[in-house]
Every structure is written in C-alpha cells, then in structure tokens.
Design a protein around this nucleic acid. Sequence first.
DNA 1: TTTATTGTTTGACAACTATCCAACAATGCT
DNA 2: AGCATTGTTGGATAGTTGTCAAACAATAAA
Lengths: 107, 107
Amino acid sequence: MRLLPHPATDDIQLTEVLRALSDPIRLEIVARLATYGEMTCTVAGDSLGVHKSTASHHYRTLREAGLVLTKQEGRLKYMSLRRDDLEARFPGLLDSVLLATPVGGHA
Amino acid sequence: MRLLPHPATDDIQLTEVLRALSDPIRLEIVARLATYGEMTCTVAGDSLGVHKSTASHHYRTLREAGLVLTKQEGRLKYMSLRRDDLEARFPGLLDSVLLATPVGGHA
DNA sequence: TTTATTGTTTGACAACTATCCAACAATGCT
DNA sequence: AGCATTGTTGGATAGTTGTCAAACAATAAA
C-alpha cells in the first residue's frame, strides 16, 4: 500500500478547495465519494462523459487541493474524501456543499 | 434607485457560486460585505491592489453568480451580500465560507 | 512471457481568466 | 457649461483550464 503525496491539513487553502469544487465533473466525483465511500478511480469516474485522461487530471486536482486522499494497492488507486481534515480546517463547508449536491444531480 | 440585473434565487448555480468565491480578491470583497454590510464599489474595492477596472470585472462576476445585489443611487453603486437568497438556496454554505475567511485575512 | 487492466503523462488546442490601460458614460457639483 | 467622481467597457496580453488522443508505466493474470 502506497500513499500518494497530499497537502497537510494545515496547508489546505480555502480558495483552492472552492476552485476544485467549482467544476461539475469534480463536484460529481466528490459527491460520489461522499455517498459511497472509498472507491477506485475507474469507479469514481464512470460515465462522467469525459476521457479517462481528463478524469485523471481531475483526480490530481482534487488531491492537490486537499479534498481527496489517494492510496495505491496493486494496480488500483483508491480515493476517499478527506472529510475529517476538511471539517477541522473549514467547519461545515463540505457538508453544505454536499447538501446542495445530490449524486447524479444537476450541479 | 435602479436595480441592476441579477439571477433569480432559483437560478443561482452552485458551481458558479463556488467559482466566484475561489478568487482571493472576490473572496475578500465578499468578506467585507459580510462584515460591514452594504457599501459602494469604491469602498468594497479599496486597497485590494488591483486596478479599478479589474475590480469592476470582479463586481460583475459576483453579481452574475448571484452573490451580491447591486443597486444604483445617483452616481454610486451599492453592493450587498444576498445572504438570505444564498441561505435559502444553499443552506450553510456562505456561513462556512465566511467562517474560514477573516476580513483582510490570509485566504 | 504475453496480455489485459488501470491509470498517468505529454502534446495540442480552444476557451476562459485576471490583469492593466485608455477611453468612455453617467451623475452630481460649482 | 465645465469639472470632478464613480464605475463600466473594450482592447491587449499573459497565464490558466478543460478536453481529447496517443503513448506510456505499473501491476496482475493467463
């Protein structure tokens, strides 16, 4: 099991988080992770209507913004939401965004 | 007193709100409006370190995203945060962003 | 070892963004 | 009428973004 590089909780920047969430594709990925928990990139990015390389760029953006944690096991990479870290850094923020973002929704 | 065009509450889009808030200059303007209430563009944009035309573009972005309401009185334009509209549309969102954004702060 | 799976990287490209500057428009004041 | 104030608009520009396609890398499975 190998962990990819992530920003420390204290280094997560509000504007970067908001920017990462401001793309509909990334918001949908985050909503899926919130609803179904940890999943592989392939599952998280299924039927989003974008090329897999595009999805891969979005995974990176989410990771570098501090929204998701990615760990590699074998040939799979598992992503999960950094809920606790985000709650500690920006209380209530993620919850309010998720409340407004149904999975498969209109956002 | 003249009101500029704004999106209706139901037409405010989450991703556009998040995108509007993801710029440090705009976030600072929003934080000022939240702290001090309605103010003119000149006051809201004072000592932000950008040209007045740049600031003007940011006012427009905030208005079109549904974050602020702008009304003209004489030659002044007053901006105010659409707190109630935003709370109705995305409960808790603005508060959590403001909680993480001190005026004159590091965001 | 060969093949399939999973995901990243690089290049290209069009669209968008933030910025400044200069000119303009609208209003109020003298 | 002339001037100052307040803010917007349009042009230019440099940088960023989202996207696809093709090639690649790493791992697992046959």
